[in-house]
Design a protein around this nucleic acid. Structure first.
Length: 532
RNA sequence: GCCCCUCUAGCUCAAUUGGCAGAGCAACGGACUCUUAAUCCGCAGGUUCUGGGUUCGAGUCCCAGGGGGGGUACCA
């Protein structure tokens, strides 16, 4: 299904192969070459679409790519040449083909340039007649089995350059990923967001609860950490007056590998001054809807063997065309006044944000049938955690226990897009506390198909409160929590110059790409995943 | 980290209860002027992941190690 909706393989109809960049093509091995136009295979298919069997067009073209199949049959040979835009048959009759015997000796996997008349065979297959041809590069190793392809998944990842030729799904996925990044950037920039690059080497690994990689700078004789999140630098930029700022970049977390985790992965983080977690919910939904529409042309996805609708459950239609879907979002995102009266979290969703919103405690109540709060006795929470196979640490408070319980029992069961709102302050050291609910924060995670796709909050802007949060983290750290955040004095100093109300958002690009490309394993959306 | 599965020709896979190591594709030689994974004939291809053990005899059973996969824990 995805191959029908993914235009990636047909999009490059105009590209040409520049003779200037391929001097080998003009070598003396092909003296009679009349230099027909060099075009992509998709361009040939488009220009000569619908010819009847046995047609000779009188038009010559040159194509280049790898030889993927070969059928030699006495005085005539057939081949299949593939470039990044598709496949085309090569028709090579001995009487017309330059050095016919040598052509027949080409190996599957050799890079060829073939030029000649575009025609159809008696069976009607569109072909380029190999009047002239030359080898651009030979393969010394046999190419993967033409029928089975690469069955060994390890080889697919270790030799991705083969996988890309042989596994069509892989090519489509990575083109989709590229377009996802490009669409995300243009959509954000249309709304006034500025892309920046912040340091990857951090003196302090902050901005997320995660174990960092450590490295060492020789000249400074100082340990540095690969960033676990760009958050604290981006917020420094908000303090610096970059009101709408974002970064798409690699972050690094020194944790286990799994189908959902790679030690390095791509995170989109954005910050919007004068915004809050409500505006981030709107923006998140608008962005994801726009990406699905523009990349797939639909909001009804297939994920695994299940349907996954990004449409609002009430049946209210979102504009079905793939045109700019950002007009309402840009209005909302350009809030110019501080949001003095944020709506209560569970008020009926404003128009345009129909995805379900539900608090973490409400989900826990639905799932376990018990009312929970931060005043629930710790022993009760601990025993519930143990019942659900959560490994409890002694320093965990009620907030952490509730969050763990939610992640274990509720999160994997959520299928339709759902904003889970109001996270415990204990696990949200950078988020603003709910004004009327002490111990809870204005934070949400967007869950789709049981996976966390986005995480966002109204940023904590008060430097004194931030210091207290850091100190609490430091105490967890002393008790053995390696993921707790260290105190970042430099960030506190920046905050002390005044930080405006700010909404912040993080989106896991790999997971989003997997969602749209119907790929469950993170290594299938990473060109070169970390392997053992 | 823990649990389970897997490893045989370049590739994809067979091999009955422990009894001569096999096929297709690729390669190589040959036939063939319209094929679509072309077809046909021929030829060649092996430290059965490694090291021990049981046995008259081990690809097969046992032990240890290694590569890979899946699940699980931390985590996004």
């Amino acid at each position: 299904m995805k191959s029908d909706t993914n235009p990636a393989m047909n999009s490059d109809t105009n590209s040409t192969i520049s003779p200037d960049t391929n001097p080998a093509m003009n070598s003396a091995t092909n003296p009679a070459a009349a230099s027909p136009p060099k075009v992509s295979i998709a361009a040939v298919r488009q220009e000569f679409d619908g010819l009847e069997a046995g047609t000779e067009t009188g038009q010559s073209r040159a194509v280049a790519g790898r030889l993927m199949l070969r059928r030699v049959q006495g005085k005539v040979a057939f081949g299949t040449i593939q470039d990044s835009t598709g496949r085309l048959q090569i028709f090579a009759p001995a009487a017309r083909t330059f050095e016919f015997a040598k052509f027949c000796e080409c190996s599957i996997g050799d890079w060829l340039e073939v030029s000649g008349e575009i025609m159809t065979t008696r069976r009607g297959e569109l072909s380029v007649r190999a009047d002239h041809w030359q080898v651009l590069a030979r393969t010394e190793n046999p190419f993967p089995d033409k029928w089975h392809g690469l069955a060994d998944v390890d080889t697919r990842y270790r030799q991705r350059y083969l996988d890309l030729w042989v596994t069509e799904q892989a090519r489509e996925t990575f083109v989709l990923r590229s377009r996802l990044l490009s669409e995300t950037r243009s959509w954000l920039e249309a709304q006034g967001y500025v892309e920046v690059e912040t340091p990857i080497l951090h003196p302090i690994a902050g901005g997320a609860l995660a174990k960092p990689f450590v490295t060492h700078h020789e000249a400074l004789d100082k340990d540095l950490y690969l960033r676990v999140a760009p958050e604290l630098y981006l917020k420094r930029l908000v303090i610096g007056g970059m009101e709408k700022v974002y970064e798409i970049g690699r972050v690094f977390r020194n944790e286990g590998l799994s189908t959902r985790h790679n030690p390095e992965f791509t995170l989109l983080e954005l910050y919007c001054a004068y915004g809050n977690y409500e505006t981030m919910m709107d923006l998140t939904k608008e962005l994801i809807v726009h990406l699905a529409q523009s990349l797939l042309g639909t909001l009804r996805l297939i994920y695994g063997d299940r349907e996954l609708s990004l449409e609002e459950p009430s049946g209210v239609r979102v504009s079905g065309d793939a045109g700019p879907a950002n007009s309402s979002a840009s209005e909302r995102a350009s809030v110019s006044a501080p949001t003095s009266t944020p709506a209560p979290a569970l008020a009926s969703a404003p128009a345009g944000t129909p995805w379900r919103r539900v608090t973490m405690t409400q989900l826990l109540h639905e799932k376990l049938g018990v009312e929970f709060g931060l005043d629930t006795p710790l022993e009760d929470l601990r025993s519930l955690c143990r019942q659900h196979e959560v490994l409890v640490q002694e320093w965990w408070g009620a907030g952490k226990l509730l969050c763990e319980l939610y992640e274990k029992t509720c999160e994997p069961k959520i299928w339709e897009p759902t904003f889970v709102v109001n996270y415990p302050l204990e696990v949200s050291p950078l988020a603003m506390e709910c004004p009327e609910q002490p111990g809870w924060t204005e934070r949400f995670e967007l869950i789709i198909a049981g996976r966390e796709v986005a995480n966002a909050f109204s940023e904590l802007t008060d430097p004194q409160q931030q210091r207290e949060r850091f100190e609490a983290q430091a105490s967890y750290r002393q008790q053995g929590d390696l993921e707790a955040m260290p105190i970042d004095e430099d960030y506190l100093k920046a905050m002390s110059y005044g930080m405006p109300p700010t909404g912040g958002l993080g989106i896991g690009i790999d997971r989003l790409a997997g969602l749209l490309a119907n790929q469950h394993a993170i290594r299938d959306v990473l060109l070169f995943p970390t392997l053992r």
